[in-house]
Every structure is written in structure tokens, then in C-alpha cells.
Simulated assay, not measured.
Amino acid sequence: MGQLLAFDVYGTLIDTQGVITALQTRIGDRAAAFSALWRDKQLEYSFRRGLMGRYRNFGVCTAQALDYCCELLQVDFDEQDKQALMACYATLPAFADAETGLQRLQAQGVRMVAFSNGTADAVAGLLAHAGIEHYFEDVVSVDEIGTFKPNPKVYQHLLTRCDQQASATWLISSNPFDVIGARAEGLRTVWVRRTPTAVFDAWEYAPERIVTELSALADALD
């Protein structure tokens, strides 16, 4: 069976703050704060829908979070602006360390899949645009079972889809909630601490490894 690495996509491989440039052309120095709130609200909506059992896909959560940010921050984006910003989510850049890290793992013969809250089509397109799709043998999406990370069903779905045991499967994620969710289901975990100020939740499910960039992942897993 061998080891399998399941990579979270948004925030781990792909930089969700890549939308800041598009926001700057519209709202100037308010862009960074808007982008951060948009990301936080996007995740909050996915959590809430998962708990409620009222699934709508991640694109819907993203669009509704955008509407919320416009209302709260009193930003008057018209529909054309909103569509353009949503389109940015299909062309977000990979983090600078992503390809180097994936290349090293591929050279070692490691099996890798993308594992995301996004739909399979959206994630496949995003990885292709970033030029890193060829490193992954598959895209596993929560959309296939209609709920979101960190629902335990999501991690069990990953194992079933990939015909893997939890003890032979690593989740690689920058999102503590994702790492905790996977660890609680018996998967092995790596937290990608992308900013030095990031704090991991003080729960009983600590990551087995911590890296600050994906280029260090191959060494961390040896």
C-alpha cells in the first residue's frame, strides 16, 4: 500500500491572499484587510454549513462571504467587480515553495493527492493554472460527500477513495482545524506554519511534524 501524502490546497499549496492585487486596484490600502476577512468568513460559512447539514459547495461559501465583506466594510462592488474577484479564485498563485517541495517528494517516489474543500473541477483547474497539477495522482473533494473539513466523514472518505489505512496517510495542511480533524481520525499530520506568528490550537491533537515551508517537507518525513 505504501505512504500517501494528502495535500490541502487553499492556504497550503495555493496562496489565497493572491486576490489582494485585484482588490488593490479597486479599494487601495484596504485590500489586505478585506482579503483576510473574506478568507475567514469563507471558512466560517463552510463550518456552519457542515454543522447544519445544509451543504452548498465552496464556491457558494466564497461568493456569500464576499457579499458579507462588502456589506460589513461598506464597499460598493457591482456585479461585474464581484464576478472578476470570484474569477481570481480560479487563478490564485501557488506559494513559491510549493513546486520545489513537490519535486523533491516526486523524486522520492511518494504518492500524492490533492485533498480540498473545493470542488474537484475547481481544484483541478487551480492546480493546472499554477502548473503543479502533474504532481498529484488524484483530486479528492469534500463535494463528493456533501460536507466540509473537519467533519470526520471527510477524512474517512479520503481513506476510502484512496484505499488507504490512516496510519499510512499523511495530511499536509497549513490550517490547524484541518490538521486536528485528520489527527482525530488517526491520520498522520504535518502542519505548514506559513507565518511565524501563527499559533496552533492547544488541543490534544498536535501535529506530528511542523515545517515552515514545503521545500522542507521531504526532510521532515524522512
Results as ranks from 00 to 15, higher is better:
Val190Phe: 00
Ala107Ser: 10
Glu44Thr: 03
Ile132Val: 15
Glu79Val: 13
Asp219Glu: 12
Arg183Val: 00
Thr91Lys: 05
Gly186Tyr: 02
Ile180Tyr: 07
Thr169Leu: 05
Pro196Trp: 07
Tyr68Phe: 15
Leu85Met: 01
Leu5Cys: 04
Arg111Ile: 00
Pro207Gln: 09
Glu71Cys: 13
Asp76Phe: 01
Gly53Leu: 15
Ala122Tyr: 07
Gln83Leu: 15
Asp219Lys: 06
Gln156Cys: 08
Ala198Ser: 06
Ala206Phe: 08
Ala90Tyr: 11
Asn151His: 15
Cys70Tyr: 13
Leu105Lys: 07
Cys70Gln: 14
Phe47Pro: 01
Ala168Trp: 04
Gly2Leu: 11
Ala84Asn: 02
Arg56Asn: 15
Arg161Ile: 07
Leu13Thr: 09
Gln164Ser: 06
Ala98Phe: 00
Leu217Asp: 04
Lys153Leu: 15
Trp38Ile: 06
Val19Pro: 10
Ala94Thr: 12
His157Arg: 07
Arg26Met: 07
Trp191Glu: 04
Leu171Thr: 09
Ala122Glu: 09
Leu126Cys: 11
Leu37Tyr: 10
Arg49Asp: 01
Val142Gly: 13
His134Cys: 11
Trp191Val: 02
Gly59Tyr: 13
Glu213Phe: 08
Ser215Ala: 14
Thr160Cys: 10
Cys69Gln: 11
Thr25Glu: 15
Gly131His: 00
Glu208Lys: 01
Leu51Ala: 14
Leu102Arg: 00
Phe200Asp: 01
Ile27Asn: 03
Gly28Gln: 12
Ser215Gln: 10
Asp219Cys: 05
Ser46Ile: 08
Leu221Gly: 03
Val60Pro: 04
